[in-house]
Design a protein around this nucleic acid. Structure first.
Length: 874
RNA sequence: GCCCGGAUGGUGAAAUCGGUAUACACAGCGGACUUAAAAUCCGCCGGCGCAAGCCUUGCGGGUUCAAGUCCCGCUCCGGGCACCA
C-alpha cells in the first residue's frame, strides 16, 4: 500500500467502486428492515455552502451507519428548483431562470458526488421539470374538486413604480427593493388551500411524533394556536346607504378573555371593516387615516412592532351585558383577514389596549383583581393581564374566577342569541398563488363566459415556457401570447391562461413521497411509497421548523384523504440541524435596501479577541455594517466547500464538519481546525501502514485471542478501545456526531501507544484497528474503504457488520471513586469493583483526606454514589 | 412585539439520570529531530497564589450532602413570524 495518505486517489477509487457495484441502488425488500433517510433537498443556488455539507454529511453518516447495521437504506437527492433567486439572477445576468437553474444543478451535483454521499441517484428529481410539477397541478385540481382549494382575495405587497407584487424579502424598511417606492397593500384574487380544516388533526397528531424534537412540536402547536374563547356581537342600528343595517346590526368580535367583557370601554375595527368604510363617508380625516392604513408592510413582525394608532368613527354600539354605548374606533393594528376584523377593547386587562387607551384618553375600568393588589392607571403591570384573579366591578359576575366567569358570561350571551363559545385557530389558510414566472403554473383557464375553468386532466401538464427572461417589472408570462391564449375547455371560445404560479412550498410538500416511487408517468405516487414511507429520519435546518414541515404534514393528510397513500404523517424522526452562520457585510444606500459585499472586497478590522470592530470597502472606503447570519446567496456570505475538498479531500471536509459541533447547534463558520482533521486522517493512514509493515506479521496461524488471559497492559488497552466503542455507539444513538469523532481520535491515540510486540498484542491491535475503521467509516467512508481493503479485513467495509463492545473486554477489578468532604473534592479512593456500600463508607471515613478536612468533627452523613463518588458531610 | 432555542478556557467544544468542570481538538509557548524549513514526535497550556489553598460554566437570587445540569428574575446572541428557501 501507499505509505503516504493521498486523499484524491483514495476518494476517486472508492467512488468508482461504489458506482460500479451500484452500492446505493435500492429497491423494496421485505426481508430487511427499511430505513428511509432523507435530507432536505437543496435550492440550486449555484454552489454548495457549508450548511449543505453539514446537512448531507449528517444524513450520510446515518445512512451508512444503518446500512452496516443491516437496514435496507434509501437515501435520495433532488432539487427544489423553482423560486425567486433564479429570477433575480435572470434580471442581473439576462439568462433565463431555466438555464441558470439547470447549470447550477449540474455543478452542485458534481460537488455532492465528490463528497461521496451514499445516494441512490436513479431517484434524482428536480421540481422545475414538467414530469414533477404535472402532479402539483393534478392534485391541485383534486383539491378544487374536494373543496380543499378555493379562490378568494389575498393581501399582497404592491410596488407602485414597478407595478408588481413584491415578496416579503423584497420589501426593505417598507420600500420596494429595486425602486425604493413606499410599498402599498393591495387585494387581489388567489387560490387558498384550507389547511385550517386540518388544524385539529395537525395539532393532535403532534403527540404521535415521538421522534421529533420537543421544541419543534412546541413551535408547531403555538403556530396552529388553538384557543377557546367567545365570539359575540355588539348590537347597533347603523344602516348603510341601502337602508339595511350593516352586518345585520351586529358587530362581531372574538375574545379569549370573556371574563373581562364588563371592562370593555371601546371597540376597534380594521380599516377595511364595513363600519369603518361607512363612517369614512364625508369624514376626510377618517378617509385619510384608512388610506394611510393601506400603506406599510403586511408582515406580522412589522404589524406587531408598529406604533398603534386609531381614530374614532363617531359610531356607537351597544354593550350586550351592560347596555352601555361603546364607541367604535378604527385601529391600524386590527386585521380584516383575522377573525371578524374587529376586537373589543379592555384597556384595564390587555397590555395593547392599555397603551391605546392611555394614548387616546379612553376610560380604563378594572374588572379583575388579583388578591388585594392595588390597580394603578400610571403604568401597565404584569398582573393586570393575569387569568388567576376574580371578577370585580362586574355586577352579578363579581367573585367568579376566570373559567367560571367565562362560562357564566358565555351562557348569558347565548341566551340572547348573540354569542357562543368557540374554538379559534391562529393558523390561517395557505395562499399558494404567486404573481411570479419561475414556478409551477396554476392549471386554470379564465373564460369570459364560463369563469375560472380547471384545465382538464388530459391536458396536463400545463408546461411553463423555459425561455423567458424576467426584467423585474412583473410576470413575463403576461407577454407570452403563445402561453396565454387558449380555447376554453368548456365552451371552446378564446380564453386566457392563469399566469400565477404556485408557492414553492407546494413543490417541497410531497417530494419525499415521489422519491419513494418508480417515477411512473401515469401516477403521482405508486404503491412503493407505502413500503418506504414514512421517512425514518428527516434532516434539515431548524429554519424549516414551522412552515415547510407543517405544509408537508398537511399535504400528506390530503394525499391520504384522496386515497393516494396509506400513511398519515410523513416524517417519523426529525433532526433539526443548526444553522451555519457567517458574517455578512452590507451598506444601506439612500432610498432603502441593503447592498451586500463579499469578504474579499473588504478591509476588516478586528480587536485582540478577534471580534470585528469595523469594515470598509477596499475600492472606495465605504464604511459597512455587519451581521452574523445564515450563509445565503443573497447576502454574499456563503462559503464554498470546493477549495476545502480540493485541498484536503472529502473525508477531511466531512470529518471536520462533524467534529466542529453537535448537529443541532448553531455554528459560526471558521476553518480553524481543518488542519487538525487532516492531520488525524494522515495519522490513521500511517498507522494502517505501520500495522501492515510491522504488526500484522506477528499474528500466528492460529488466533489465540478468544479464551486467553491477556497481559495487564494489553487488557487495559483493549478495554479502553471497547469503552470508547461503547461511548461511540451511545453517541451515534443520540445523533451526537462530534463526540463520535472524538472517540475515533481517542482510539487512535490509544492504538499508537498500545503494546505491539507478540502475537497476542498484534491480534488485539488488529481487532481494535478494525473497530476504529468501522466506527470511522460513516464519517470518512473513503479512507475507511481503502484501509479495510488494503489491510485484508474484507473486500467491502459497507458489507461489514457494525462493531459492538465485548463484555469480556470491558471487565475490571477495581474502580476509582472520588472522595468529597462537604461537597468539595478532597481525594480519590480505589476499591474493588464489587465492594459493598459499608466497606466503601469505612474506607472513605478512614481516608487521610477525610480526617484532615473534617478537622475533628464527626461525620453527620455519608453519601455513596456507586461507581462515582463518596461525599462525607461533617 | 410574539413563539422557539443558545451562552462553559485565547478558540471549536466535552461532561449519558443532579455526582471528578474544561475530555477531544485548534491556536499559542517550550523542547527533540534537521545545515535549515516543512512534516513528525515529546511537554506545558482557566484565573489568583511562593505554597497550603481559594475562585471559575453570561448576570442576580434560590433548592440540594452535591448545580454547567433543577427553579425564579434578567442580559446578550441566533432561528421563525405565513410571498427567501
Amino acid at each position: 500500500m501507499q505509505d503516504k495518505y493521498l486523499p484524491a486517489d483514495i476518494e476517486r477509487a472508492a467512488q468508482q467502486h461504489w458506482d460500479s457495484t451500484e452500492a446505493f441502488r435500492v429497491t423494496a425488500d421485505a426481508s430487511k428492515p427499511k430505513y428511509y433517510c432523507l435530507s432536505m433537498f437543496p435550492y440550486p443556488s449555484g454552489k454548495l455552502h457549508m450548511g449543505h455539507v453539514r446537512n448531507y454529511t449528517i444524513g450520510d453518516v446515518l445512512s451508512r451507519f444503518h446500512k452496516m447495521k443491516g437496514f435496507n437504506v434509501l437515501q435520495p437527492m433532488g432539487w427544489d428548483a423553482f423560486g425567486l433567486p433564479a429570477e433575480n439572477a435572470a434580471i442581473k445576468n439576462q439568462v433565463p431562470p431555466a438555464k441558470w437553474t439547470y447549470d447550477n444543478i449540474a455543478y452542485m451535483k458534481q460537488q455532492l458526488k465528490s463528497l461521496g454521499f451514499a445516494i441512490d441517484w436513479r431517484r434524482e428529481l428536480a421540481t422545475c421539470t414538467p414530469e414533477y410539477y404535472k402532479w402539483n397541478q393534478w392534485i391541485f385540481l383534486r383539491m378544487l374538486e374536494k373543496g380543499v382549494a378555493e379562490r378568494k382575495t389575498q393581501v399582497v405587497n404592491w410596488d407602485p413604480v414597478d407595478q408588481t407584487v413584491l415578496a416579503n424579502e423584497q420589501v426593505i424598511d417598507g420600500r420596494g427593493w429595486r425602486t425604493g417606492a413606499v410599498v402599498e397593500k393591495r387585494e387581489i384574487p388567489g387560490y387558498y388551500l384550507k389547511i385550517t380544516d386540518y388544524a385539529d388533526e395537525l395539532l393532535g397528531d403532534l403527540d404521535e411524533l415521538t421522534g421529533w424534537p420537543e421544541r419543534v412540536k412546541l413551535m408547531q402547536a403555538n403556530w396552529i394556536g388553538k384557543s377557546t374563547g367567545v365570539r359575540f356581537a355588539f348590537k347597533h342600528d347603523i344602516a348603510g346607504d341601502d337602508g339595511a343595517l350593516i352586518n345585520d346590526g351586529k358587530l362581531w368580535v372574538f375574545t379569549t378573555r370573556a371574563d373581562t367583557i364588563m371592562g370593555v370601554t371601546f371597540c376597534a375595527v380594521a380599516a377595511e371593516h364595513p363600519l369603518a368604510l361607512h363612517a369614512a363617508k364625508g369624514n376626510a380625516e377618517l378617509t385619510a387615516f384608512i388610506e394611510k392604513c393601506k400603506h406599510g408592510s403586511v408582515m406580522e413582525a412589522d404589524m406587531a412592532t408598529m406604533e398603534k394608532e386609531g381614530l374614532p368613527t363617531g359610531l356607537f354600539v351597544t354593550h350586550p351585558l351592560t347596555g352601555k354605548q361603546v364607541e367604535v374606533w378604527v385601529g391600524n393594528y386590527v386585521l380584516m383577514s383575522y377573525g371578524d376584523g374587529a376586537v373589543m377593547g379592555v384597556p384595564a386587562h390587555d397590555e395593547r389596549d392599555f397603551a391605546f387607551a392611555k394614548k387616546y384618553s379612553l376610560p380604563i375600568e378594572q374588572v379583575v383583581a388579583v388578591g388585594d393588589k392595588p390597580y394603578s392607571l400610571d403604568a401597565w403591570q404584569e398582573w393586570y393581564g393575569s387569568k388567576d384573579g376574580a371578577c370585580v366591578n362586574s355586577g352579578k359576575y363579581d367573585g367568579l374566577g376566570y373559567e367560571a366567569a367565562v362560562d357564566a358570561i358565555a351562557a348569558d350571551l347565548a341566551a340572547q342569541g348573540i354569542g357562543e363559545k368557540k374554538v379559534q385557530w391562529r393558523l390561517r389558510d395557505w395562499g399558494i398563488s404567486r404573481q411570479r414566472y419561475w414556478g409551477c403554473p396554476i392549471p386554470i383557464i379564465h373564460c369570459d363566459s364560463c369563469g375560472s375553468v380547471p384545465v382538464p386532466d388530459d391536458q396536463l401538464p400545463v408546461v411553463l415556457p423555459e425561455d423567458c427572461v424576467p426584467d423585474g417589472s412583473g410576470n413575463p408570462l403576461h407577454k407570452r401570447e403563445d402561453f396565454l391564449n387558449v380555447p376554453c375547455p368548456c365552451c371552446g371560445k378564446p380564453a386566457r391562461r392563469e399566469t400565477d404560479t404556485m408557492d414553492t412550498f407546494v413543490d417541497s410538500s410531497w417530494y419525499y413521497a415521489r422519491y419513494a416511487t418508480t417515477f411512473g408517468k401515469d401516477k403521482m405516487v405508486d404503491d412503493e411509497t407505502n413500503y418506504w414511507m414514512t421517512v425514518d429520519q428527516y434532516i434539515g435546518g431548524i429554519e424549516h421548523a414551522i412552515l415547510h414541515l407543517l405544509y408537508s404534514r398537511f399535504w400528506t393528510k390530503v394525499m391520504r384523504d384522496l386515497g393516494l397513500v396509506t400513511y398519515r404523517e410523513p416524517f417519523a424522526h426529525l433532526l433539526t440541524q443548526g444553522m451555519v452562520l457567517n458574517n455578512a457585510f452590507f451598506h444601506k444606500p439612500e432610498g432603502g435596501g441593503k447592498n451586500y459585499y463579499w469578504e474579499s472586497e473588504l478591509d476588516i478590522r478586528k480587536d485582540a479577541k478577534g471580534q470585528i470592530t469595523g469594515a470598509t470597502l477596499k475600492k472606495d472606503g465605504t464604511v459597512l455594517e455587519h451581521e452574523l447570519t445564515t450563509m445565503s446567496k443573497s447576502k454574499n456570505n456563503g462559503v464554498d466547500p470546493q477549495s476545502l475538498i480540493e485541498q484536503y479531500g472529502a473525508d477531511t471536509a466531512r470529518f471536520f464538519m462533524m467534529f466542529a459541533a453537535p448537529p443541532e447547534q448553531t455554528l459560526e463558520w471558521s476553518d480553524a481546525g481543518v488542519e487538525g482533521a487532516y492531520r488525524f486522517l494522515r495519522r490513521v493512514w500511517s498507522f494502517g501502514h505501520l500495522f501492515a509493515s510491522e504488526i500484522r506479521g506477528q499474528i500466528g496461524a492460529q488466533r489465540q485471542l478468544a479464551g486467553t488471559k491477556l497481559p495487564d497492559d494489553v487488557a487495559a488497552f483493549r478495554r479502553e478501545i471497547h469503552l470508547l466503542l461503547k461511548q461511540a455507539n451511545y453517541d451515534l444513538g443520540k445523533q451526537q456526531f462530534n463526540t463520535v469523532a472524538s472517540a475515533t481520535m481517542k482510539m487512535l491515540n490509544a492504538l499508537e501507544k498500545a503494546p505491539r510486540q507478540g502475537a497476542l498484542a498484534a491480534e488485539v491491535i488488529e481487532e481494535c484497528f478494525g473497530i476504529l475503521l468501522r466506527v470511522l467509516s460513516p464519517l470518512t467512508p473513503h479512507i475507511s474503504h481503502a484501509l479495510w481493503l488494503d489491510l485484508g479485513y474484507g473486500d467491502d467495509i459497507l458489507k461489514a457488520a457494525w462493531p459492538e463492545p465485548l463484555d469480556a473486554a470491558l471487565v475490571q477489578d477495581e474502580v476509582e471513586l472520588m472522595l468529597q468532604v462537604n461537597g468539595k473534592l478532597r481525594g480519590a479512593l480505589r476499591v474493588p469493583a464489587d465492594a459493598p456500600k459499608d466497606a466503601i463508607e469505612a474506607a472513605a471515613l478512614a481516608h487521610e483526606a477525610t480526617l484532615k478536612f473534617l478537622e475533628g468533627r464527626a461525620a453527620k452523613k455519608v453519601v455513596v454514589v456507586p461507581g462515582r463518588l463518596v461525599n462525607i458531610v461533617g
